[in-house]
Design a protein around this nucleic acid. Structure first.
Length: 835
RNA sequence: GGGCGAGUGGUGAAAUUGGCAGACACGCAAGACUUAGGAUCUUGUGCCGCAAGGCUUGGGGGUUCAAGUCCCCCCUCGCCCACCA
């Protein structure tokens, strides 16, 4: 052992040891205690910065802690390897996407290892590997089989760079989530998954996820967006065509004064025939189609519309109301038609004011009556129904149910639930993805490739230089095939699967990563899943995490697994930011902002343990944090200090191996240290056991080391001093091992143990060590602190009161006052209320 | 507009059920040891004040013996959803 802390030699040494001894290997068999700790696998984009590291360091701390608690921990890692940047690299630099991806994987794997993250690398997967995507294609077939995969010609979100996008990938400002370009609508025939069919279950089962952050559940709830209401069958008065609406406010239906259609509504075409207003209508509809969704739904966009010349008939009262086409109604939600009630909906009110349409009050404010002629805004609160024939006089909320039932009895309406979520668009017009296993036959249509013919291999030899869209569609050998059903010549589907699908089921594959006959074994996944702890970034709250839940439910319904949710507990860590030199602002680390911190350099300078310790100490892990170079130094100094303590006292430590701490024989200094040790064990265990408070756990270790220094140990110290010191140092090394595993392994050996600290049991709290004879409490006068006193802990609250009131200092304090009340908080304070 | 979360020293931050605000660390200051080092150790460090003492958790009210924590109003910031019928 050397005096200097030689992180650069011990770190590679222990990394090699973990690999050579298969410390993180786990077999799939049933164990007494299992734990599946999963960190979201990365996209292999190149090299990682310290911000990426937080994710893996947290996962590793959990893995190592659970192992020390005696769990068999499944801790796998892999690569979300299909996707756009690889293809762009190919276009720009002439490197094959496969080559680019695998070389990045190599880089990033080296980085993960240099951080000392423990994975069972025998289970490594890459979604771009045929042995993996074969089963991604199988997942597609399962959905197809169950009628959940379908093609439709639909306007899709189109980014000229990233091609087709799912709704979830379009940001609120109408730009592409990945590249920031403007997204436009484009008509294409595409493959969709019917996630809408699972909307109700995906929403309801959120309540099962009690170990998920509230925030993520809320976000998914918002995204799914359930609203309860009614479908009411209006009809076009002149033609008798049905024109149903969805409404959440059927109680306002007697106040309908016009009907508003979306410009894309299918009725619009029909209404144009022989219509004197045709030219105006057509012009309006065409203008609206040019406006992007983001612009149209912008708050500041003025409400506009055009009268069709037609009317609708309100089935409740037979009234005729003019039919308008407007820019504020969306075809994507409800039926694309809105019964407009200006008196009780602000949007309808605004529109009615603009075009001078009538306003009819049907919900009266019971406090200050409103009147259509003078109202300045829609009245959207509850009240008493008026002008509503049979329902007059009733409370609107209370009457709502009866109103829908009335519609149902008269066969012009029913209760319905609408969801905001749209079907999931999974087609991508790109090369670097899993080919959709479909063959288009002129006779049989879209035929799924039989499971026995999987995988549909992605050819290597394609021309990436093409500017004509998907390179795959120009690869004749790939495209030309025969129909699996009739054997006639047919064309392969050339769209590939969105990369999201690959990452929707990878957590299952880790259990049986090399299985060639199935995607996974039911009995194995039923044992290991749901994942006990999933760790990743909040940015996946509605994409990956929602898609995965959906796919798992489908796989469950297909009978391939017994559980209903993939991830039992979820932890979302905050981002690490750094002030950018360019603009002085805090940003998440990125190359374009020029604020990335490379772990490679830091590891060279301070070692991986320092980087890990600092990353965990930086702040609460769920919150964003600012990287501070100077504070890294502090973490390094702390580790070096521990190293030096062991080095300086090594002879004493080794000589006292047989000594046992004995509470009855301890003097105060060792008694205090012994108590601090066990307080620390309790605190750190609590922080790691689900609380995920690594920052305070590290702080507690620092406190413990400060206490160790307070016990000035020498060769002449008593046996109890030595015994307590040794136990403290041993426990300390174990307690720090999830955070700084390399130094922990090395010191564990220096303390005279065989190598392999993960085999050492986590320290247990000795309750009697926590006891103390005296305690310092605060003395308050009317809630204000006046002094502090040390009192015996054996006193009951009544005795404490008497004891404190008898103290000279307290008597002085109370001179001339009358005691009204005394509040004793055991172990904390005594508050004397006196006047 | 709706929902969720946050606001504490120079900085990152602590604070089971309401119970000693600022643990731990960074930074800073002073000192010790040293043939100057970005090493180590000691001490100090919320603010005002020479001091006694007073003030202090975004602002203002309230409940309580006691409020960072609970209630009401307001301000600021972040995130999600949003002409959703």
């Amino acid at each position: 052992m050397e005096e200097r802390y030689p992180f650069e030699t011990i770190e590679p040494k222990w990394q090699k040891y973990w690999t050579d001894h298969g410390v993180f290997k786990v077999d799939t068999a049933v164990h007494e205690k299992k734990y599946y700790c999963l960190t979201m696998f990365p996209y292999p984009s190149g090299t990682m910065h310290v911000g990426h590291g937080r994710n893996y360091i947290i996962g590793d701390a959990v893995t190592r802690y659970k192992m020390a608690r005696g769990f068999r921990v499944l801790s796998p890692m892999g690569w979300d390897a299909f996707g756009l940047p690889a293809e762009n690299a190919a276009k720009q630099r002439g490197v094959h996407p496969k080559e680019w991806t695998y070389s990045n994987i190599k880089q990033m794997k080296r980085q993960l290892q240099s951080w000392g993250i423990g994975y069972d690398w025998d289970r490594e997967i890459a979604t771009c590997h045929p042995d993996y995507y074969k089963w991604t294609q199988w997942v597609f077939l399962k959905l197809h089989e169950r009628g959940l995969a379908y093609q439709k010609n639909a306007p899709v979100n189109w980014c000229e760079y990233c091609t087709t996008l799912a709704n979830e990938e379009v940001l609120a400002d109408g730009t592409c989530e990945r590249c920031g370009r403007k997204v436009v609508k484009k008509d294409l025939t595409q493959w969709f998954f019917k996630i809408t069919e699972y909307a109700g279950r995906l929403l309801d089962d959120l309540s099962l996820l009690d170990k998920w952050p509230e925030k993520v559940r809320t976000m998914q709830g918002n995204w799914i967006g359930r609203s309860e209401g009614a479908r009411i069958e209006f009809t076009i008065a002149e033609t008798g065509d049905p024109c149903p609406v969805f409404t959440t406010r059927p109680d306002t239906i007697y106040g309908v004064t016009f009907m508003a259609l979306a410009p894309e509504h299918p009725l619009v075409g029909k209404l144009l025939a022989d219509n004197p207003h045709a030219a105006t209508i057509r012009a309006f509809v065409e203008t609206q189609k040019m406006v992007s969704a983001a612009e149209r739904t912008d708050d500041t966009t003025k409400k506009e519309g055009v009268f069709t010349g037609f009317h609708v008939r309100n089935p409740y009262n037979g009234e005729r109301a003019p039919l308008w086409i407007t820019n504020y109604v969306l075809m994507e939600y409800g039926t694309g038609a809105v019964m407009a009630v200006p008196a009780h909906d602000q949007r309808d009110f605004d529109f009615a004011k603009t075009y001078n349409l009538p306003i009819k009050v049907v919900i009266q404010n019971p406090d200050t009556p409103i009147d259509a002629a003078s109202m300045q805004a829609a009245y959207v609160d509850d009240g008493v129904m008026v002008n509503s024939a049979p329902f007059d006089g009733r409370g609107n909320r209370e009457a709502m149910h009866d109103m829908i039932r009335y519609a149902k009895e008269h066969a012009f309406g029913e209760f319905t639930t609408h969801y905001r979520i749209r079907d999931w668009l999974i087609s991508r017009q790109r090369y670097w993805g899993a080919p959709i296993p479909i063959v288009h036959c002129p006779d049989c249509g879209a035929v799924p490739v039989p499971e026995t013919q999987l995988p549909v291999l992605l050819p290597d030899d394609v021309d990436f230089k093409t500017e004509r869209g998907n390179p795959l569609s120009y690869h004749e050998e790939f495209v030309q095939t025969v129909c699996p059903k009739c054997g006639k010549p047919a064309r392969r589907e050339t769209d590939t699967l969105a990369q999201w699908l690959c990452s929707c089921w990878y957590y299952l594959r880790y259990v049986n990563p090399r299985l060639t006959t199935e995607a996974y074994k039911k009995e194995d996944v039923d044992y290991w899943l749901p994942v006990d702890q999933y760790i990743g970034g909040i940015e996946h709250a509605v994409l990956h995490l929602l898609y995965s839940r959906f796919i798992l439910k489908v796989l469950h319904d297909a009978g391939t697994c017994s559980f209903r949710e993939p991830f039992g507990a979820l932890f979302t860590q905050g981002m690490i930011c750094k002030r950018s030199e360019k603009d002085g602002q805090l940003h998440k680390m990125s190359k374009s902002k020029g604020n990335v911190v490379s772990p490679d350099e830091l590891i060279r300078e301070y070692g991986a343990d320092t980087v890990r310790l600092y990353t965990l100490f930086i702040g609460p892990p769920e919150k964003d944090a600012e990287w501070n170079e100077a504070a890294v130094e502090g973490a390094f100094r702390f580790l070096r200090r521990i190293w030096r303590r062991v080095y300086e006292t090594r002879a004493i430590l080794l000589a006292s191996k047989g000594l046992k701490p004995d509470l009855t024989k301890m003097e105060t200094p060792e008694r205090d240290l012994y108590r601090k040790l066990h307080e620390s064990v309790a605190k750190i265990t609590h922080d790691l056991e689900g609380a995920f408070q690594f920052n305070t756990a590290v702080a507690q270790i620092m406190e413990l080391v400060n206490s160790v220094d307070a016990l000035k140990l020498t060769g002449h110290s008593s046996d109890q001093s030595k015994a307590v010191y040794r136990e403290t140092m041993e426990s300390l090394v174990i307690l720090i091992s999830p955070f700084a595993p390399h130094i922990a392994e090395e010191l564990w050996m220096e303390l005279g143990h065989p190598p392999g600290i993960l085999a050492a049991p986590w320290p247990e709290v000795n309750r009697s060590a926590l006891a103390r004879d005296e305690i310092e409490i605060a003395i308050q006068l009317c809630g204000k602190i006046r002094s502090r006193e040390t009192i015996p802990t054996r006193l009951s609250p009544t005795e404490v009161e008497a004891y404190v009131l008898a103290l000279e200092s307290v008597k002085t304090m109370l001179k001339g006052l009358t005691v009204r009340k005394v509040v004793v908080v055991p172990g904390k304070l005594v508050n004397v209320v006196a006047t």
